[in-house]
Design a protein around this nucleic acid. Structure first.
Lengths: 337, 337
DNA sequence: CTGAAAGCGCTTACAG
DNA sequence: CTGAAAGCGCTTACAG
């Protein structure tokens, strides 16, 4: 099974290369007979066009890149990343795109890689997972006119950038309000200020408290970095302040928090109620019966890819911005993990 | 900052395109003056070669693919995948490779994608995460002479295939022997027979029992699929058989198992000792103080990429096979998660 | 050691 | 609606 070229197909079908190319690309004005003949030959021979040549000639590769600046180490400990990838690959497979994965382990690496991406001309566009560290390369993307869409809320130039975010403010607001409605008044938070999702969740927490005329108590605020350990540590710091409930801004941290509570013999939710924030895929969620805010991570990924493709096909004019709603999943928190 | 071509560099340096190309590719026999001059121009201008053109002309893309057949859904719930990716991207960044990610959500999708990969000529080679489902495309890879290395142990044609495996038999043996040395005799296992890692771990378990002249008791064997839930379920099935210890062949399942034990009021390790198998990255491991077998997942990924590159550069002649040792990490299992 | 030229497999104005 | 031809930016025998 040798690799066929477009010329051979042209010969077999008795037409020119140009015509084969047009059929391949779905050009509208081709006589039905010719189109069918060419398609028949393609079918029989199992011909697949060489995408590299196509790219060189047309400047379109059908490769999109997923950029993950893992300055936030947590990227690899929390399951956000696999879920996003899942969504994007699904879209790619359905639309004959191939996905290039760019993971930076440091800022320097990031700059190098971005430079390569930009000049090598391999990808048509990028999906970028948002991070406080965006700043250093997003401007270069813009400057080079590389199409991209951000997953999450970008830090700067927000009005000019396409993104798919999830309603973190609203989600945290729901979570906190839920605790308030349950009658809790000393509600702590394990927050995170290393990314915009963390910021927004903090904001939602404040919003709910404000609505209930409760002053924020600095002692009830502890910071983590989305990792399990940091959740454990932050919760330990909170315990002496005797909160009756804690909103933990990620499930991974909430797991750490549960452990901290268990160590000192506190029961969830009787002693302390806990609401997490969904960074776990469904299969793992099923484990801890933790009340949590569910965000549609997979869908975000898929949507981001879809929007990117829309932009590339000039069916969408950027900036295009979407904020997906979250959902409060109430579970009987037994305190077990 | 327009994109420069090799011709422009040639003009600026006063040489031919061919010479610039040779400098770029590190050809040995070039006069030092010319080489330096060309390099100077490249430096000044910040020129980066267009990899697409390079590929079309040379048939080498410097793109390698990572193939993840997620027939085993668990791929996205357990942290194996991010860890592997971490290792591979690290190698790619260091060696100017770009990584294409191919995730199949079904076997059909897999066949389509593989066909595309093979004919599109985009990638130089593949790293493949092993799975019982390999069978359906590995033969095609061989047939098309696409270089690849398998992560884990392939199911068939094992002698002809390059792979990086981890010593699962040895690891499970260590784990079980550890429990035996602790004096346990009714040692259950939460096994998994959907991939070769599961098979090997089961084998190691049997080996250790045999060494202690203990007959295997079918009642003490329960199967899961590497997911948290399946670990929970399998452990529940084991509890009535009153094991005094359980070897759980993945940490993710072990977490589920802990939950099952906790629900019925059993303490770890006093009532039942548990040893897991490391599918969790260090940051998460830190959570549950669970005795576990640690496997070098990241390193496997990196190594697989390195071997693949070696094969591509013809510095390694396939098949090249590596089995990395595992390590028993003994922790005071408090039973907390 | 270096250059002129052909070629990688496709796309796409340009004619017709 | 279709074809002949130029061109995408590089690599690599082939001469010299």
């Amino acid at each position: 099974m040798k690799k066929l070229t477009i010329s051979q197909i042209a010969n077999l079908a008795g037409v020119s290369k140009a015509t084969v190319s047009r059929v391949l690309n779905g050009y509208p004005h081709i006589s039905p007979e010719i189109r069918e003949k060419v398609q028949a030959v393609i079918q029989e021979t199992g011909f697949q066009r060489n995408n590299v040549a196509r790219l060189l000639a047309s400047n379109r590769s059908n490769i999109i890149g997923l950029v993950i600046p893992s300055g936030a180490k947590a990227v690899f400990t929390d399951p956000y990343f696999p879920a996003v990838t899942q969504g994007i690959t699904q879209f790619c497979n359905q639309n004959q795109l191939t996905l290039a994965l760019f993971v930076f382990h440091s800022e320097d690496e990031g700059m190098d890689t971005i430079k390569n991406i930009l000049t090598a001309g391999l990808v048509d566009g990028l999906v970028i997972t948002a991070d406080r560290k965006d700043d250093y390369f997003i401007p270069r993307l813009i400057e080079h006119q590389m199409p991209f869409v951000v997953l999450g809320r970008p830090e700067k130039n927000i009005q000019d950038i396409s993104y798919v975010d999830t309603d973190n403010v609203g989600g945290a607001y729901m979570a906190t309000k839920h605790l308030l409605e349950l009658g809790h008044r000393r509600i702590g938070i394990v927050a995170c200020n290393t990314n915009s999702a963390g910021d927004d969740r903090y904001k939602g927490y404040l919003q709910a408290l404000e609505e209930y005329d409760i002053d924020t108590n600095p002692c009830l605020i502890a910071y983590g970095d989305f990792s399990l350990n940091s959740g454990y540590e932050a919760t330990r710091r909170l315990i002496p302040e005797k909160p009756d409930a804690i909103f933990v801004s990620s499930d991974t941290m909430a797991l750490g928090g549960l452990q901290a509570l268990r160590e000192v013999g506190l029961t969830v939710p009787d002693d302390i109620a806990i609401v997490g924030y969904d960074d776990l895929p469904p299969a793992v969620q099923a484990g801890p019966p933790l009340t949590t805010v569910r965000q549609p991570i997979e869908k975000s990924g898929l949507l981001a890819a879809e929007i990117l493709m829309g932009i590339l096909d000039e069916e969408i004019t950027p900036p295009h911005q979407v904020v997906l709603p979250n959902q409060l999943i109430i579970r009987a928190s037994s305190g077990a993990t």
